[in-house]
Each structure stands twice: as C-alpha cells, then as structure tokens.
C-alpha cells in the first residue's frame, strides 16, 4: 500500500499531463494551470522542512562540538535575524528597542542550544534563556516603534531586511560569482596540460574563440581568426548541439516514460 498509492499517483498525473497536451479543450487547460500552481504551493511547505534541516544540522554541529562548530553559530544568527527582519517592520522613523529585541531573541536561542549541549549546569542556561525570552516578550508588547506582521507584506520594506540583502547577500553573491574568472583561468591551465587528442581538440577550438575576442591579439591574425571562430560557432557547434539535444531529449523522454509507467522507481529508493 505504502508504495502502490504513490506509484498510482505518478501514473495518473503523468498520463493526464501527456494527454492534456493533445486536448485543446477549455477544461483540460484549466486543470493544467491548476496543477502547475499546486506544485509551487507544495514547494513552500517543503521550504519549512528545508529550514528545519538547516537548523538541525547547525545545532548538531554546535552540540557535538564538531570541527569548525563555532561558525555554525553565524549561520544560526544570520538565519534568525533575517527571519525576524522578514516578519517585523518599524512603524515610523525611529527604531525604539528593536535591536535589543533582536539581540535577546538571538541570545535566548543561543542559551537554549547551550542548555541542550552542556552536561551539567543546565538550570543556569535555561534560566538565562528564560530571562532573555521575558525581555523579548516585554519589548514585543510594550515597544510601539515597530510591530510584527504576518498578514501584510510591510516587512519586505523593512530597512534592515533590505540592508541585509544589499550589504550581506549581494556582495558575497557577486564576489563568489566573480571568483569564476580566477577558476576559469586555473581550469584553462588544467586544459593546457592535458595530453590527449580530445583535450587538444577542445583546447584548440577554445583558443581560437578566445583570441577572436581578445582586443590586442585579434588584429594580428586579421580576418581569418574571426572567420574561423564564426565558422566554429555556426557549423560544428550547431551539429554537436543538435546531436546532444536530440540525445538529451530522448533520455528525458525515456526517463519520464519509465517514471510514469513505474519502471524506474529510483526516486522512491527502489531502482
């Protein structure tokens, strides 16, 4: 039973979506649009599972004092601060006790983790946690400079939420992306050292295309470099892309069909 029903669901919905493609009728279109929306909605519930996993792994590292456990604290701090920013917003210009609130929430979570970790003296940490929880609750009740929002999207305008995005997420994101430039250099070096026919072919065609876009070297070779590079991009490239795309298409179609018919169950743990 536990395996049969999921397989039935896969078969029914898979077949429906296949036949839907051939049915232009209104009803079929409506059901199709519905199903696509459903997937997005289920995805959000899955997000809760994901956050739980992230939290548990980080806490486990701290508790077991695994190597580099200290850094996991920053993960937790980042996670919870951003979550608080995402559900609160200042009411006016001032911040009131907002940052004290954020700090006490973070500290109380820290104390909780600590209380779970230590072998003796749990009472002390639990007590401290209680103190911080009380401080947070009191500020939450009596401070009017900011409020919680669960129903309307004011927190998306919260300056702290935006600043964290602009000054924490963006720089790391952009820099990680720019690391690609260095990595591509080391990858190119690796390709240079490779000593077989296939790697040489790859390298030669890469060089031709790179030289064509190099403002200093391209003029030396004149028109030929541009022509060869264009030919490479338009002719063999097109052929290979087409062969790969057809192969991939067949692979996707075959795998999808096997999944729908229940022949391939690897995704359920049964290959």
């Amino acid at each position: 039973m536990k395996r049969q029903i999921p397989l039935m669901l896969v078969l029914v919905f898979g077949m429906f979506l296949i036949f839907q493609y051939f049915i232009p009728h209104e009803t079929s279109e409506e059901v199709y649009e519905f199903l696509l929306d459903w997937i997005t909605i289920i995805g959000i519930f899955a997000m809760a599972l994901a956050i739980w996993s992230l939290f548990r792994v980080a806490v486990a590292k701290v508790r077991t004092r695994k190597e580099n456990w200290g850094y996991s604290i920053f993960t937790l701090v980042g996670l919870f601060s951003m979550m608080i920013f995402g559900w609160t917003a200042p009411n006016g210009e001032g911040w009131g006790w907002y940052f004290v609130f954020v700090l006490s929430v973070l500290l109380s979570i820290g104390m909780l983790v600590q209380a779970m970790t230590v072998k003796s003296g749990r009472g002390l940490w639990a007590g401290l946690m209680l103190v911080f929880v009380i401080i947070a609750v009191l500020i939450g009740i009596f401070d009017n400079a900011w409020s919680f929002y669960f129903m309307s999207a004011e927190p998306l305008e919260n300056p702290m939420f935006r600043s964290f995005f602009d000054f924490v997420l963006m720089p790391i994101l952009a820099t990680t992306f720019s690391l690609l430039a260095f990595f591509i250099a080391s990858a190119a070096y690796r390709a240079f050292r490779a000593r077989n026919l296939l790697a040489t072919l790859l390298l030669v065609s890469a060089l031709i295309v790179m030289l064509r876009f190099n403002p200093y070297l391209a003029p030396i070779f004149g028109d030929y470099m541009a022509k060869t590079s264009n030919w490479l991009m338009n002719v063999p490239n097109l052929a290979a892309q087409r062969a790969i795309v057809m192969g991939v298409g067949l692979g996707i179609v075959a795998t999808a069909l096997k999944v729908i018919l229940g022949i391939e169950r690897g995704y359920m743990g049964k290959g």
């Binding site: 067949l250 692979g251 795998t255 690897g266």
Partner: peptide, 25 residues
C-alpha cells in the same frame, strides 16, 4: 555527456528492464 546521464541509471542497476529502455532509445 548529455544522454549518458540518463543511461547511467540503467547501467548502474544492470537490471534488464532498465536496459531494455536503452534499446528503445
């Protein structure tokens, strides 16, 4: 490369029914 990824599951299992679909491909 490309389609080889989709063949991988059949290869690794060496189960005849999965290999059968490779033949269809």
């Amino acid at each position: 490369i490309g389609e080889e990824l989709y063949a991988a599951s059949a290869y690794l299992g060496r189960e005849p029914i999965l290999l059968g679909s490779l033949k269809a491909q």
